[in-house]
Design a protein around this nucleic acid. Sequence first.
DNA 1: GCCGTACTACGATGCCTATCGTACGAGTCG
DNA 2: CGACTCGTACGATAGGCATCGTAGTACGGC
Lengths: 116, 116
Amino acid sequence: MTSPAVSSRSLPHPERDEIRLEDVLHALSDPMRLRIVRELAAGSGELSCSHFDLPVTKSTTTHHFRVLRESGVIRQVYRGTAKMNGLRRDDLEGLFPGLLDALLDAAGRQAGRLGG
Amino acid sequence: MTSPAVSSRSLPHPERDEIRLEDVLHALSDPMRLRIVRELAAGSGELSCSHFDLPVTKSTTTHHFRVLRESGVIRQVYRGTAKMNGLRRDDLEGLFPGLLDALLDAAGRQAGRLGG
DNA sequence: GCCGTACTACGATGCCTATCGTACGAGTCG
DNA sequence: CGACTCGTACGATAGGCATCGTAGTACGGC
């Protein structure tokens, strides 16, 4: 099968109205999570957790993805054994217009400045 | 005297190049500190620490101002017994164009949405 | 010099969190 | 079914941090 079904395993997400700016900022204040979000923004669609090659164990990776989901930054859905991740661009743009772009731009500038 | 001299007590600030996005986001992810920054942005110039009426003790207030200063969000200077606080708008705008405005706008929208 | 105000320094406390390792569950493929 | 992959759950650990209270320092005015 080329497109496996979405599993029924539950993955609680906050509604758009429940997303709090402080939680979003806290989620993005961790370098590992900021890196994940930047990769998600660079990729066109959804990315699986295992696509990311982070310098931490899988347990810790799971933890970071959960923080991002529970803060409302990303949306996660099971597709077979993989868990696909996507930025909640529309919800964030509706709540905080221009914020996500400004944050991604800021992260990109800093990476360019520090990383070479 | 109407304009007391700036004291020599040392208050270390990060240089513009040393300001890290993660630190700024972490600083603003605390409700008390976000509130301080919003008040600073609303006021035209510098504000003294004692101008703020926060629901925490003065010890904790000192702590929050230090986090904001050490992350590069505000600049602090002694003027007599008072310590004046000002947003580092220029430095932040130079490093992360549009970010501060987007953050303040987001905070304002959320306050309007939740606070009435 | 003495007092009051503004802020700080330090220690304590309790909570949160980033990290790990191991054991487990869900799904796919042979 | 059995093996393998992907991701989770749980416990442990170590460090960070928001908060407080008390004691202390710096400055300005009397």
